[in-house]
Design a protein around this nucleic acid. Structure first.
Lengths: 151, 151
DNA sequence: ACTGTTTTTGAGAATCATTATCAGAAAAAC
DNA sequence: GTTTTTCTGATAATGATTCTCAAAAACAGT
């Protein structure tokens, strides 16, 4: 497997862009996060390495990482865009609890294949598939029930 | 099938809320829209009927419509939340062109069933399933190719 | 290494969809 | 019709994201 930083460098070169220190740090930080993340969380991870990188640069760099194929847009939670590492192929599906905002990642090969077929059938060049299941997790469900019974 | 306005009235009553004129107009407007919509589009539709309803009320009413089961949150496009009528069961899946933002609605019974099973298996009370396929539509793909060839 | 050119950066302002506030209006209760 | 509760429009506030811009860094050629 091609190393992430090499893949990014290649993408940058092809588009007359430069591999700068902030960009290198951002790539390193992303690799450190092994789950979905939002700009804020990534920014915190980055600051562990270099406090001088600005939030603006984080936001500026995300689209580049996506175009380069390192990251992809995932779900949206609490008004924030979430991303994940693109190589994390097995975890395409998110169940979000509307109460505690806990996120469970699962996988469904069958759905993915079906959806790829559908894109193809509709003359659609697929970039990213996004599946979000909204609901209430077991824990919250139980708590809500208890509260109901108190009244 | 229960009429939308009755369903809404029932929900409101159960929650000590009132069926007011603005709310009635909003429900009527939603039924007039037979596709996905965002707050802005709904607001335009509402103004055809009554210019006095404010945008704030539209935003305030959306969560009620969702909880009442008339509408559901759908995808996000151009930084805007999109909704759709809940009874529109067959159209659960959206393919969004990242270039022209055209949205193609399709259906996949198999995916839906699979996802429902997964929710259940994870002790998750399902509220809403959301599938978005991002990519580039055939038309845009061709245009981009032509432009490439010009250079 | 030096110089000119291009791209990038951090800081902070701007944007814009969505939410919150609040005093007055409407609806239900009495 | 009076009181109580819930709603509303107008408008201000919020907050994630994007934009601006002058200074800094990376690059290309010498």
């Amino acid at each position: 497997m091609e190393k992430a930083i090499d893949k990014f460098t290649k993408y940058l070169r092809e588009n007359h862009m430069r591999l700068t220190k902030p960009r290198r740090i951002i790539v390193e930080s992303i690799l450190e996060i092994n789950k979905h993340f939002n700009a804020e969380l990534l920014y915190e991870e980055i600051k562990k390495r270099d406090k001088s990188v600005s939030l603006a640069t984080v936001y500026r760099t995300m689209p580049l990482l996506i175009k380069a194929g390192l990251s992809k847009q995932s779900f949206r939670c609490s008004s924030k865009d979430n991303y994940e590492n693109a190589y994390n192929e097995e975890k395409h599906l998110h169940m979000i609890c509307g109460v505690c905002h806990k996120i469970v990642e699962v996988n469904s090969e069958i759905c993915m294949i079906k959806l790829q077929e559908m894109a193809q059938a509709n003359d659609f060049t697929l970039k990213n598939i996004n599946i979000t299941i909204n609901g209430i997790c077991g824990d919250c469900k139980r708590k809500l029930k208890e509260e109901d019974e108190k009244i």
